[in-house]
Write a protein that binds this DNA or RNA. Structure first.
Length: 326
DNA sequence: AAAGATTCCAACCGCAAGATT
DNA sequence: GAATCTTGCGGTTGGAATCTT
């Protein structure tokens, strides 16, 4: 494999493009297609290296480039794809018409990554950074998790799963509490997640009660619309019925087998965490079978955050077929 | 109003893989 | 099969714009 010849030849311009240069590049490509990028600059009368021309074209001048804010759906898609593909920006960009890998990468690093960290989610692994924080339940602010809806179910489940495995490893209560339940190492779970997700993609995208490798059956935890209805108060924490929530750590195993409750003012909702934790693909299923998510284009990020409580169901757009990348 | 901090994003760099010689 | 060329990718940088103090 030969090394890329250096473009930094004397006389070649670097730095920001001028409108005249842009026009030359556009005119040339419209007439001749780009052909060989290496020879293009000379033919087009540009004092740039081919690499620079290619980047300028693909990231900025291409006619199908979509500019402006990322829509809520685009953001959701990016997060979901990133959780599966990692930093494969080009692969992610391929699923977002009009967006470039560079733009997505910038958006990720400038916005999404920070939000995930704020939520206590590792932007690299998409698993919880809260494992240690959960030892102090006052830090487990479910509002913070739920308020940032894009990851809502997937990430909550990841967090829960991760939390569980982490807690299980360090807790003496594990064996007695989750005896009989099958838990896999995280990598294996992720693999299962992907496989099931892929299978579901292939199976007409809606599998109401998909079987799982552990022999279990996916149980819809709650109607997706329930998530719309949750109103989390400022001081909301995850509360577990009948337990001391100041000592939640000790009850983690209980969470596995019992339902948990999200308070919403005077009302509350119960969720069966068992099904959440034992059905890693449920999020994908939900995403694929739930009604279309609301497309929100709030003017600011804060607007998005504050509006998030209205939008808890999530759907990967139909165009998304991650099986291509498996 | 000014200075400093932060955010945004276009552009660059180096590497790697596939294609070609 | 080895060397070289071409293209694409992901990480990083630097300057402009914006925000905060």
């Amino acid at each position: 494999m030969g090394r890329t010849p250096c473009c930094d030849k004397s006389g070649l311009k670097k730095g920001p493009w001028t409108p005249e240069e842009d026009q030359k590049l556009i005119d040339y490509i419209q007439k001749h297609d780009h052909g060989s990028w290496r020879t293009l600059p000379k033919n087009a009368g540009l004092a740039r290296c081919g690499k620079s021309c290619r980047l300028r074209w693909t990231n900025y001048l291409r006619p199908d480039i979509k500019r402006g804010r990322f829509s809520f759906e685009e953001e959701e898609t990016i997060i979901q794809l990133h959780s599966i593909l990692g930093n494969k920006w080009s692969a992610i960009a391929a699923r977002l018409p009009g967006r470039t890998d560079n733009e997505i990468k910038n958006y990720w690093n400038g916005h999404i990554k920070k939000r995930l960290i704020r939520m206590g989610i590792d932007p690299v692994t998409h698993t919880s950074l809260l494992n240690s924080s959960l030892c102090n339940p006052t830090l487990l602010n479910l509002c913070g998790l739920l308020g940032l809806h894009p990851l809502i179910k997937t990430e909550l489940m990841r967090i829960a799963t991760n939390l569980l495995s982490s807690q299980c490893q360090s807790s003496g209560l594990v064996n007695q509490s989750i005896q009989g339940q099958q838990y896999l190492p995280q990598d294996a779970q992720a693999q299962q997640h992907l496989e099931v997700f892929q299978n579901q993609q292939l199976q007409n995208q809606t599998v109401p009660n998909a079987p799982f490798p552990d022999g279990g059956q996916f149980q819809e935890v709650a109607d997706t619309n329930l998530w719309h209805d949750i109103v989390i108060s400022d001081s909301d924490l995850m509360t577990v019925p009948g337990v001391d929530n100041n000592n939640l750590e000790a009850y983690i195993p209980s969470l596995v087998s019992d339902s948990f409750c999200i308070s919403s003012g005077s009302d509350s909702q119960n969720y069966n965490l068992t099904s959440l934790l034992s059905t890693p693909a449920s999020s994908s299923d939900n995403m694929l079978s739930s009604p279309p998510s609301t497309c929100m284009n709030s003017s600011t990020e804060d607007d998005r955050d504050s509006s998030c409580s209205d939008i808890y169901d999530f759907q990967i757009p139909n165009l998304l077929d991650v099986s291509d990348y498996m």
